[in-house]
Design a protein around this nucleic acid. Sequence first.
DNA 1: TCGACGATGACATTTCGATGACACAGAGGA
DNA 2: TCCTCTGTGTCATCGAAATGTCATCGTCGA
Lengths: 224, 224
Amino acid sequence: MRVLVVEDDEDLRIAVSAGLRSAALAVDSVGDIAAADEALWVNSYDCVVFDRMLPDGDSIVYIRSRRQEGWAVPVLFLTARDSLADRVDGFEHGGDDYLVKPFAVAELTARVLSLCRRAGTGRPPVLRYADVEVDTGRREVRRAGVLLTLTAKEFSVLEYLMVRPEQAVSRAALIEHCWDAAADPMSNVVDVTIRRLRNKLRQPELIEAVRGRGYRLTTAGGAG
Amino acid sequence: MRVLVVEDDEDLRIAVSAGLRSAALAVDSVGDIAAADEALWVNSYDCVVFDRMLPDGDSIVYIRSRRQEGWAVPVLFLTARDSLADRVDGFEHGGDDYLVKPFAVAELTARVLSLCRRAGTGRPPVLRYADVEVDTGRREVRRAGVLLTLTAKEFSVLEYLMVRPEQAVSRAALIEHCWDAAADPMSNVVDVTIRRLRNKLRQPELIEAVRGRGYRLTTAGGAG
DNA sequence: TCGACGATGACATTTCGATGACACAGAGGA
DNA sequence: TCCTCTGTGTCATCGAAATGTCATCGTCGA
């Protein structure tokens, strides 16, 4: 799950980003609409956190124009307490949410996770494949009923694969969705993370390398 | 599937080419319209990625003139973000697509694959001949229902033959579509790949050599 | 029968994924 | 403040799979 944070107050931006990262989300952050626009063209996000007023304009206006182009990523607006009228404005699009400053970072995190989940409409909260269960709500993974302790990155990658069972998923796609913009697409981070996942799952054949095309979940390997 | 990338910024060209190659496409790349023109006369491509502005002119103008000659290969234009008018211009031809810089390579790859697919309009996603099935989407091949594991090259060659059942396909045509420009047309790579294919298909007569004219799929051979 | 062309097996090279070791940053405790 | 532990990323290396080259053999047809 990858999130973009658009907030001009640097302290707040850092605090929010840190909070979201601790919930195992990949976070990019920028300070104005122009930078946000560029980031949104370059990458794909599962959710965007937008401060309402930014140095180069009102984010609602920007979002409204993107929506007209069919852009559907859920947005959480951060609005100032006094401008009550904002709340109405910010809620035009059904998929969005808002939060009034000041707010607890934990609250924000909860809402963002909820928005991310809602975006993948109808996706069951618990993913299952072979004897692996991924509880996306609790962020827990079990294999043959045994709870595993995965790191944030490991969880993120496994979740992405579990949503696409038996399909080859490219390294590029994984980098795009599980890492933030700082990730080097040429490095072998993905390989290494896959290896660590395989080790923890104690069933290396479950995640199969498809030469030249990435990785995929499979039950065909090894025993089969 | 073979793609030509025309982009003057070398870094971008390399990044784009690498991305497309990782999607199992054969990629040639050049830096200006003159070179593109030559490449397009010499080879045939399933899709072309054109930067909008090139050192020796506007690629739209060039494409427009080629179109008037009946040239129909789909083109994906890369346009600069600020020139909004470009978007309209670039879209005159129904089969084309455009992408605004900056963009994610993954996004570009997805669109190119889509264009390639669209180009073979109405071609069924699963090709069948005799008891062989080629699932072009999943990149899977079955013979008599049994899944075979082919390499990228083998798949590519088989796919090309399957689209032209019972027609003799020359080595030159195969080299052209399944290999990139670096391939040596005098070598016997094709012969060797055909042999490996025959072995994996466990039915050598299925791919028949037509002396002096190449290879063709046939059910007439051997067992009858 | 000869010669061109295709078939074949062996081998060389290249590409790609696997792996272990290490580097580094941040959190949290002493 | 310093230390330690954990998560994460980088790197060099290894080895297997994929791909390409080559020499040689067989066979078809003029």
